[in-house]
Computed example of a mutant assay.
Amino acid sequence: MKFYLDFGHGGKDSGAVGFNGTFESNVVLKIGLILKSMLEDNNHTVITTRCDNTYYSLSYRTNKANKYNCDYFISLHMNSFSNRNARGCEVWVYDKSSRLYNTAKSICSNLSKALNTPNRGVKISKSFAVLRKSNMPAMLVEIDFISNSLVEDVCSNYDYCYTVAENICNTLLNLD
């Protein structure tokens, strides 16, 4: 299988920023590179948006995935909210008929258990460019809330990043 891994934000766009200054873009890059290695270790081809802290437009991301004719588009993010107690994993897909809908439910469930965070479930959105403009089944994973100090304290830790990557990888390996 050929996966396109999109590590959200990057460069001039840090994404969400935790209370202590942790950038979403750095956390998802770290998790994503671990996930890339895991998928490659299982003989899958992996194309990524970025391998460092560089900014790429949303159209660049989907155009690249489409150009390489990837089987699946997976975008990694950390969520943020003004309520600093907010926690939980959620996964966004384009619609319920997406071939990744059940996989998205599994990722939510697996991350929720592994990270001891609420399962916020699968959400539907036709407005996310990466879901709308990719030619392959796509999902956007909001791992947890970087705005929560408990999450921010651990999200740069290698063990945390490895656990997230491992749970996403194991779920993706069960795709048909």
Rank of each mutant, 00 (worst) to 15 (best):
G15K: 00
R61C: 09
T22Q: 08
V93P: 01
R99G: 05
C89K: 03
N79Y: 09
I74S: 06
S14V: 12
N43W: 03
N79W: 08
C108I: 07
K36G: 03
I47K: 06
T49L: 06
N66V: 05
D71P: 08
D95W: 06
F81T: 07
N26E: 15
G21P: 03
R99E: 11
T48V: 15
N83Q: 06
S106T: 12
L76E: 04
Y55Q: 00
C108F: 06
T45E: 15
C51Q: 12
D52G: 09
C108H: 03
S37F: 02
Y72G: 01
L100K: 05
G32E: 07
K30C: 01
S14T: 14
Y56A: 02
R99A: 15
Y55L: 04
N79V: 11
V17Y: 03
V46Q: 07
K36P: 02
A104C: 13
R61W: 11
H44E: 14
S57L: 10
D71L: 07
F23K: 14
L76F: 08
N85P: 00
R61G: 03
I74Y: 08
W92E: 01
L76K: 00
K64C: 07
T45Y: 04
K105F: 11
K64T: 13
V93K: 03
G88R: 06
C89D: 05
E40A: 08
L58G: 01
I31T: 06
S25D: 12
F23C: 09
C51A: 09
N43Q: 14
R87W: 04
A86C: 13
V46D: 05
G88E: 13
S97D: 11
K30R: 12
E24C: 01
N53Y: 12
K105Q: 15
L58N: 03
T54Q: 14
T54N: 12
K64D: 15
V28D: 03
R50H: 05
S80F: 08
T103K: 09
R99T: 11
G21Q: 00
S59G: 02
L35V: 02
F81M: 10
S75W: 03
S25W: 05
A65D: 05
K12L: 10
R87G: 02
R50I: 08
N20W: 07
F19P: 14
G32P: 00
L29T: 02
M38L: 15
A86H: 05
S82I: 14
R50W: 04
G21F: 02
Y72R: 08
D95K: 07
A65S: 13
R99L: 14
N43F: 11
D71K: 10
T62W: 03
K30T: 09
N69E: 15
F23L: 14
Y55T: 02
D71F: 08
A65H: 05
A104D: 07
K30N: 14
N20V: 08
T49N: 15
Y60A: 06
F73L: 11
K105H: 11
L35N: 02
C108N: 12
L76Q: 02
D71C: 10
I34C: 10
G15M: 00
I74R: 04
S37A: 15
F19M: 14
I74Q: 02
A16N: 04
Y56R: 11
G88V: 12
R99Y: 12
G88W: 10
S14K: 14
T48M: 09
N85T: 11
N69Q: 14
N83G: 03
C108G: 06
H77L: 07
N66H: 07
I107H: 01
